[in-house]
Write a protein that binds this DNA or RNA. Structure first.
Lengths: 218, 218
DNA sequence: ACAAATATTTAGCTTTGTCTAAAATTATTT
DNA sequence: AAATAATTTTAGACAAAGCTAAATATTTGT
């Protein structure tokens, strides 16, 4: 696969949200910041190569083989993101562009060894799951912290309320996007919860918990 | 710079042995496994871009700017080689192909952080020196172990005598290509020497020392 | 159901990097 | 120093991947 073909495969995969959905030429063009006519050309080629199913005017989807390739790319992308954050001190919002390049490196041994070096991580710095070598992985869902069951952990990915006082609170308690939060206990009465974050245990009110989004897997 | 341009720059650099030598179109073509006519086209473009000096029929050399690019590529290549060997357990002879891909990744932060992560290594797994960020580096020379001065260390890169008994000796003493050897002491009388290799100290006869090549820097 | 709007494809052109074959230049030999 | 050999460049073609403009399908609104 060429670099460009791989980019198209990833775009089709992501637009189909991982399920094997048919996506439109226009959608792919927009996603990839290119023109619809270029997409038509490329999906024809991918179709001939057995990577995609394409019917003129009817959109395009990935074949089994195409999905395999997509999953391998996603796996590589997310492993590299973990590497950049954990080993090279990148912040969670700096990694995408570089991982976008690294995911195209071709070497099975490289990926396997990288996975091992990182301790076989399950999720990337954005809380998204990393497919196994065979392409299996759990879905990630975004939930408000108060909806996360006891014992589950997730990665902080956003806030519902973005008012200065709330953001100030998060800052003061050293809760940042990208942090892993584990729900230790919940108080039925007032909805407050105990969480563990970076080795620290803190108690959080319901108001806070209903305004913080976590990404949790499975 | 495109991937292809970078490959040409590296080829011209290596053929010129790092000094700013003029190299022939044919030599570049052979090195890159391509045709002389393709080289002509490319060096014209590199010349227009201010990367190379090219006079028809007279060969091509790198400009200052071109040399800077070459050194940056060499730096990246060798840092990635160290990474692959030290962190991902690649053996010294498996790294080249993968490093050849990784050297094209564009991110200054990536290279700086990688350098730091590896502890600012001075040489790659083949004993070749790694240019600093500014492009400075010491030359590497290949010497027989008996010619290496006391206190200097180098990396084992080859043998003069490749007879089975000699190779068996190396194997028994766990001396392998890629190992770092430090010369501790020399015996004037019989030319035998003490070396340190992988935390072990061993005594080696003159016959052995005159048949083992090390790469040492400066 | 038909016209208008939107989406998609086709046709033809551009750029990058490569190739082959022919022409031009430089080097070598006698 | 002329002839031959070797090297290098030019000219013209090709594949990949992209674009624009025009043509064709499909969808939507009434």
């Amino acid at each position: 696969m060429t670099l460009s073909e791989e980019d198209y495969i990833k775009a089709i995969y992501h637009l189909g949200k991982g399920e094997n959905t048919t996506v439109s030429t226009n959608a792919v063009a927009e996603q990839m910041d290119t023109k619809p006519s270029s997409v038509t050309d490329m999906v024809k080629k991918l179709s001939e190569k057995g990577v995609a199913n394409y019917k003129p005017y009817k959109g395009v989807s990935l074949t089994e083989y195409g999905q395999k390739i997509a999953l391998s790319l996603v796996r590589k992308h997310r492993l590299w993101e973990v590497f950049l954050v954990e080993k090279l001190d990148f912040s969670w919002d700096e990694v995408h562009e570089v991982a976008e390049q690294l995911e195209h490196i071709k070497s099975e041994k490289l990926v396997d060894q990288l996975d091992k070096h990182l301790g076989f991580p399950q999720v990337d710095p954005h809380g998204d799951p990393i497919p196994s070598k065979k392409g299996e992985f759990k879905k990630a869902i975004k939930k408000l912290l108060n909806e996360v069951p006891i014992g589950k952990s997730g990665i902080c990915v956003g806030v519902k309320d973005s008012s200065p006082p709330f953001l100030k609170f998060l800052d003061k308690n050293k809760i940042a996007l990208g942090d892993t939060i584990l729900v230790l206990d919940k108080e039925e009465f007032d909805g407050s919860i105990d969480i563990q974050i970076k080795e620290r245990t803190i108690h959080i009110s319901s108001q806070i918990a209903t305004n913080l989004y976590l990404k949790i897997t499975e």
